[in-house]
């Protein structure tokens, strides 16, 4: 049971890291297309759109790399960033849907002929968020293996 959980968590880390690296690649390659996608959410003020579009993909890259680190400390930070980003993306897309904007997600593909994702985008983001939250909980709360010490033999 514990072993199965370990394997599931390891797969979750690999999947999250892969998803974030893949997502970041397109955004770093075409920052202008990503900035347009960010602009179309109509959430950020005009002056912040480009800076956000330039910064975000590198956060995705570093969060993905931190998730792959075997040490608990950076894994927790990476998972926290991943969960935070996914929560923010989901909220932003939900806000766009609620305002009746039919925009493409801008998450993975930045192609001009991308379809508006709608509810499937929200569901996918929520599932990824659950994975990130599980990885974070494991890295942050799980007890460290007991090390024998004079006080605690």
């Amino acid at each position: 049971m514990r072993r199965a959980l370990r394997i599931v968590l390891l797969l979750a880390r690999l999947a999250l890291a892969g998803v974030f690296l893949w997502a970041a690649w397109g955004k770093i390659a075409a920052p202008d297309a990503f900035a347009l996608a960010v602009y179309r959410y109509r959430i950020l003020p005009s002056w912040a759109v480009n800076a956000f579009a330039l910064w975000l993909p590198w956060i995705e890259v570093l969060a993905a790399l931190a998730l792959l680190v075997p040490g608990r400390r950076w894994r927790a930070a990476g998972a926290a960033l991943a969960a935070g980003m996914l929560a923010a993306f989901t909220a932003a897309y939900a806000a766009a849907l609620a305002r009746g904007l039919s925009i493409a997600c801008g998450c993975f593909t930045l192609r001009a002929d991308a379809a508006a994702g709608g509810w499937t985008t929200l569901a996918r983001n929520a599932a990824l968020f659950a994975l990130a939250a599980a990885v974070f909980a494991d890295a942050f709360f799980a007890r460290r293996p007991r090390t024998p010490s004079p006080e605690n033999p």
Partner: peptide, 22 residues
């Protein structure tokens, strides 16, 4: 606190990378 500081470090590093590459 440690996790928050680490996350902030990653955010700052990301900003530096973004600035450099751009």
């Amino acid at each position: 606190w440690c996790t928050a500081v680490d996350a902030a470090v990653l955010l700052a590093l990301a900003a530096a990378l973004a600035a450099g590459v751009n």
